[in-house]
C-alpha cells in the first residue's frame, strides 16, 4: 500500500523558506499573501491493513520523518477519499 506524508512547518513558527518563496513570487508579479514550504514523503508499505498502515506511518513520523517541535504532518493512504 502506498502512503503519502505531508510535512508542514507548524502554524505560528517562523518559516523563512515560505517567506523567501512569497517574496520571489512577488518579484515575478504574483500577489501571494502567504507561502509555506513543507516536504512530501512517499512510502510503499507491505501491509494491506489500513489501520495498521496508518498507525505505523504515524510512528514513523513521530520518530523520524517529522520533528514534532516544529513540524506537523498529515498522512494519506492510497484510496483515502
Amino acid at each position: 500500500m502506498k502512503a503519502t506524508v505531508l510535512v508542514r512547518p507548524k502554524a505560528g513558527i517562523l518559516d523563512p523558506q515560505g517567506e523567501a518563496v512569497q517574496s520571489g513570487l512577488g518579484h515575478l508579479g504574483f500577489v501571494v499573501r502567504k507561502a509555506h514550504v513543507g516536504r512530501l514523503v512517499e512510502l510503499e508499505l507491505d501491509t494491506t491493513d489500513r489501520e495498521q498502515a496508518r498507525a505505523a506511518v504515524a510512528k514513523m513520523c513521530d520518530q523520524l520523518i517529522a520533528n514534532p517541535l516544529i513540524e506537523s504532518y498529515e498522512i494519506t493512504l492510497e484510496g483515502d477519499a
Binding site: L14, P16, Q17, A20, N67, L69, I70
Partner: peptide, 10 residues
C-alpha cells in the same frame, strides 16, 4: 532540548 532551524536570513 530543542532543534536547529534554518537561519532567519536563509
Amino acid at each position: 532540548p530543542g532543534i536547529l532551524r534554518p537561519n532567519s536570513s536563509l
